[in-house]
Computed example of a mutant assay.
Amino acid sequence: MEVQGKIKMIGETETVGNNGFRKRDVVVTTEEQYPQHISVQFVQDKTDLLNNYQVGQDVKVSINLRGREWTSPQGETKYFNTIQGWRIESVQANAPQGQTPPPQAFEPATDLNEEDHDDLPF
Score class of each variant (00 low, 15 high):
M1P: 09
M1A: 13
M1Y: 08
M1V: 11
E2I: 05
E2A: 06
K6H: 05
I7D: 03
I7Y: 11
K8H: 01
G11M: 03
G11H: 08
G11V: 05
T13C: 06
E14F: 06
T15H: 03
T15E: 15
T15R: 10
V16G: 03
G17W: 08
G20W: 07
G20M: 06
G20E: 09
G20P: 02
F21T: 09
F21R: 02
R22G: 03
R22W: 00
K23E: 05
R24W: 05
R24M: 07
R24D: 05
D25T: 04
D25K: 13
V26I: 15
V26F: 02
V26S: 03
V28I: 15
V28P: 00
V28C: 04
T29G: 12
T30S: 13
T30K: 08
E31M: 14
E31Q: 15
Q33V: 07
Q33Y: 11
Y34G: 00
Y34A: 08
Y34C: 04
P35M: 02
Q36I: 00
Q36D: 04
Q36L: 12
H37S: 12
H37D: 13
I38V: 15
I38M: 06
S39C: 10
S39L: 12
V40I: 15
Q41S: 14
Q44P: 04
Q44N: 14
D45G: 00
D45I: 01
D45R: 03
K46S: 09
T47F: 03
D48Y: 08
L49C: 02
L50T: 03
N52P: 02
Y53S: 05
V55F: 02
V55A: 02
V55H: 00
G56E: 03
Q57A: 11
K60Y: 00
V61P: 00
I63H: 05
I63D: 07
N64D: 15
N64T: 08
N64P: 00
L65T: 07
L65Q: 05
R66I: 01
G67T: 14
G67N: 12
R68Q: 12
W70Y: 08
W70E: 07
W70T: 02
T71L: 06
T71G: 03
T71A: 01
S72C: 06
S72R: 10
Q74P: 01
Q74L: 05
G75P: 05
G75T: 11
G75Y: 09
T77P: 04
Y79H: 15
F80W: 03
T82M: 15
I83N: 10
I83C: 12
Q84T: 11
Q84S: 11
Q84G: 03
G85S: 11
W86N: 08
W86Q: 04
W86G: 01
R87G: 03
R87V: 07
I88Y: 00
E89T: 11
S90M: 08
V91C: 10
Q92G: 10
A93R: 12
A93Y: 01
N94T: 13
Q97S: 12
Q99M: 14
Q99V: 10
T100D: 11
P101A: 14
P102G: 05
P103Q: 09
F106H: 15
E107T: 12
P108M: 13
P108R: 15
A109W: 09
T110I: 10
D111N: 15
D111H: 13
D111C: 07
L112W: 13
L112H: 13
L112I: 13
L112G: 10
L112E: 12
N113C: 07
N113V: 02
E114F: 14
D116I: 07
D116Y: 10
H117R: 12
L120T: 05
L120D: 14
P121H: 07
